[in-house]
Design a binder for these strands. Structure first.
Lengths: 233, 233
DNA sequence: AAGTGGTCTAGACCACCTT
DNA sequence: AGGTGGTCTAGACCACTTG
């Protein structure tokens, strides 16, 4: 290697990763201190820090103050998922987006929904069920609860025209989100909306969001059979 | 605010995020240059950079050189998923892990598998089907293909004792992974292994990994009914 | 108590991309 | 061609956590 070329943090990351892959640093091992690695490679400590940040993010190493940096014994497969606004997802596929409000009413959220928010006392919420279409075919059916205390404005939105999905995403950025993936056998109602048979496998994407600790909304999105969710490269 | 307290990058991030939430910076808007924000807040540009890095990571803003920083018009729900080694996942639940090899053989990978790897020519691979148990009940059934060219050592592993899942994770860290989630109706074989009925909804987690561009392995993990995958907080 | 990673600053230069 | 974010450096101090 050329002594005179400056190392970028990706160079440093690649070198360290290579040493992990070839077992120079084996699972469970403690890596040298950032400062020592920096001296060895001839770069600034901050550069090593940036590289390590990436390796930690990816789940290859864990870092603790005073404890040092360790190669994880049981690496996890860590990946990032982007869930776009449904309209955008449909349009990206080159299909025509459609939307239909199924039902809108206000009522006390069932305890299963309260549990998602971490609430213990009953709360009145807006419930919206709606169908998203791709080329006039059912694409995603959503069952959503909105906490009116934090988002009273949504009561004035014409949800027959604009989907709550879109309105919320545009008007209520969250600061925390929790997502769950599961598969269920379609109940008769869901099956009907999705234009499929009762009992068919449906992918469920459950999303709950907060601003700080204030609940905003919780949705179950039921995807039509054949739907796949792909992670970002 | 106290002029004398130093701002941390999380402080800066929170302030900028607050301005996005309250529409000071509305969707589509261009934010001031990092340098200007830094001057306004009285901190170093690097601190603003660190804050922006976080906001971009979360999918609230997009940054381009010369283009500046923009509030995204269609924010995406971006989240991180950790998929642990199955044994660990079971143990974390406080249950007893069990493992059973179902079948192991070598053959030409079907084009569906080749497609996942981005391969066009047929390749001989090791195919391993195995069952992971939690408290002696079926937990995850996996159907895996391993590219022997990059991982010939696996041919010497006693897969009746040690799961390929575990061996690979420990011995073949990858540098790239792609994950897909979907739901299928259990075919008779899968249903049998999972101890459920044919046609029941099953969550499928498909993972394909590479070292650089060399294919390592591709698995379909079929989760027993009731399984949920949760994102990291 | 002390070691290690985390952060902040100030300044410089670079690379990318829009105009 | 020039503006903006991205990165690197060197040094200092801080905060967490372990021995």
């Amino acid at each position: 290697m050329n002594e005179h070329t400056r190392l970028s943090w990706t160079d440093v990351r690649n070198r360290i990763r290579a040493r992990i892959l070839d077992r120079t640093y084996a699972p469970g091992d403690r890596l040298p201190r950032d400062e020592d690695i920096a001296r060895d490679l001839g770069c600034a400590r901050a550069t090593v820090h940036r590289a390590m940040q990436d390796l930690a993010q990816v789940g290859l190493v864990a870092r603790r103050r005073k404890g040092g940096t360790h190669v994880l014994r049981d690496p996890v497969t860590r990946t990032t998922v982007d869930i776009p606004v449904t309209r955008r997802e449909v349009e990206t596929r080159g299909e025509t987006y459609g939307y239909r409000l199924v039902e809108r009413d206000i009522g006390s959220a069932p305890c299963e929904v309260l549990a998602r928010f971490g609430l213990t006392r009953p709360v009145e919420m807006l419930r919206v069920r709606a169908l998203h279409l791709a080329d006039a075919r059912p694409f995603i059916y959503e069952d959503r609860w909105v906490d009116i205390r934090a988002t009273p404005e949504i009561l004035d939105v014409d949800l027959a025209r604009d989907s709550a999905n879109e309105w919320l995403v545009r008007n209520k950025p969250y600061s925390r989100v929790e997502v769950r993936f599961s598969a269920i056998d379609a109940d008769p109602e869901t099956a009907q909306h999705l234009g499929t048979a009762t009992g068919r496998a449906v992918l469920v994407i459950e999303r709950t969001t907060w601003i700080d600790t204030a609940p905003i909304t919780s949705v179950e999105a039921f995807a039509a059979p054949g739907y796949k969710l792909v992670t970002r490269g």
